[in-house]
């Protein structure tokens, strides 16, 4: 999907701090539907190289995307198995 670029930059861009999320996964619930991987607006997730006990590859944070999650919670909402969620990282830790 092509990245959407805005022609105008919002006035408060410098002041706004993007939230940061930490991805948590419950591997044994995953059935590899790939909704979280494909619908993540920041392309944070990728499928794991190993599988869970049922043979499904579960989502993991893709290489180099450790700090890319913005805690939009869409993966939490769209996961049919309740197997992934994000937790907002406290602001002090984001600034550090």
């Amino acid at each position: 999907m092509p990245a959407v670029r805005s022609a105008r930059v919002p006035l408060d861009t410098a002041r706004v701090i993007l939230p940061r999320g930490q991805v948590h996964v419950i591997p044994h619930r995953c059935k590899e539907c790939r909704f979280c991987v494909d619908f993540c607006p920041k392309d944070v997730l990728a499928l794991s190289t190993e599988t869970n006990a049922k043979g499904y590859r579960y989502p993991v944070v893709a290489p180099g995307k450790d700090e890319a999650c913005v805690h939009c919670e869409f993966c939490t909402l769209v996961c049919p198995e309740y197997a992934i969620f994000t937790v907002e990282v406290p602001r002090v830790e984001v600034m550090a």
Partner: peptide
């Protein structure tokens, strides 16, 4: 500092579900 992926045992929404029945059919 964010880590790559954290493995969890429970979901924040689990209290709303009969979580012992998950994964569902």
């Amino acid at each position: 500092m964010t880590m790559s992926t954290l493995i969890a045992e429970r979901h924040p929404s689990d209290p709303l579900f009969r979580a012992d029945r998950l994964p569902h059919i």
